[in-house]
Design a binder for these strands. Structure first.
Lengths: 185, 185
DNA sequence: AACGAGTGTTCGTCAAATCGAACGGAACGA
DNA sequence: TCGTTCCGTTCGATTTGACGAACACTCGTT
């Protein structure tokens, strides 16, 4: 699952990093956030177990969304050519999904490229609760969405739907392709 | 910016929601998380200001990534047809970006469809720190990425790069299209 | 050197978050 | 009806996070 001990060190580093970036001193940040200088010092040293109120005040003062302080950092430029990447073929239908970007542990969002041919539907059972899928059609046409109310999509169309309920993807044209963003929340 | 007071109520609701979903009683959750039943009761009633350690233990016990407890919930099925949606045209180049999915307040990830014609480059100044862009080409070819090391992309290619540094998008073919996921972290 | 203004750290005090046990109710069987 | 067992809440005791003043330190300036 997710790491099972609070990421004190990571938070410590994040605070210092963001504070440096903003060019603030502990005194500045103290005034701006309303927190005691001593508290900040302790947090940056990895000592301490901040309350939600404290963490939130920090996020506001540093001008970063709260989760930026607790979530892990990430890599940089990455390129996957059209043929490359891990491909998951469907037994059910002529359907290939390539994982392009998967969230690091403490996941968030996976990005898939899909290539499909007309024929059987590709039916997906629910993913973990809270998942939302975003689909953009690049070429061809497809019938996609929740099993009980799928939508016909043409190139350029965008559809989002709950990923934690059964849903389908059916290509209507040859070489139908698109992008799916799977949002794990 | 982001709301400037900690979302106690939202957390309270989230805890109860997740606990219900898992079919656990306060007693169960107490044992599993190592937190006192009383503490949980207070948190679910919106009273209290949990420490990071407490929140983290909750996330682990409930089996949800930490941020799921503090971040706002989200909508359901949404469809934007090829012609629809807010379009931001670039003055610099023949370039149109359509916002498909924007994160609710406390943002995370925006999804754009892009349509571009060859000509001037579309150069983007850095977005907020921590932003990462993911680009998938649907049709045509493009030269994109960080200004100092752009990459030539063909249909199906995927590229991710820091959005908080200057970057470019230049269409090489007519009617080049693709999808950009902008990840705000 | 002696000063002032800045840095980040250390320490005693107080408020408050957490704990654990006791509590009142609801559901079910003997 | 009583006993059992679960539920979630309340309350006093204890731990501990946040505060703020005092601290040691580094720079420039006089």
């Amino acid at each position: 699952m997710a790491g099972d001990r609070p990421p004190f060190d990571r938070i410590a580093a994040a605070i210092r990093r963001e504070r440096d970036r903003a060019g603030m001193s502990l005194t500045d940040l103290s005034k701006r956030s309303g927190l005691a200088k001593s508290t900040l010092s302790q947090l940056e040293s990895g000592t301490g177990n901040p309350s939600l109120e404290t963490l939130w005040a920090l996020g506001v003062a540093l001008g970063v969304p709260f989760s930026r302080l607790v979530d892990p950092p990430r890599p940089l430029v990455r390129l996957i050519r059209a043929g490359e990447g891990e491909v998951a073929r469907s037994g059910q239908a002529d359907y290939a999904a390539t994982l392009l970007a998967s969230s690091p542990p403490g996941a968030r969002r996976d990005l898939y490229r899909i290539e499909a041919q007309p024929g059987e539907s590709r039916r997906s059972e629910p993913h973990s609760p809270g998942t939302v899928e975003h689909l953009v059609i690049g070429a061809g046409r497809a019938l996609a969405g929740p099993v009980d109310e799928p939508v016909e999509l043409a190139p350029g169309d965008y559809l989002s739907y709950p990923g934690d309920a059964p849903h389908v993807f059916t290509a209507l044209d040859r070489d139908t392709s698109g992008v799916i963003v799977m949002e794990h929340i």
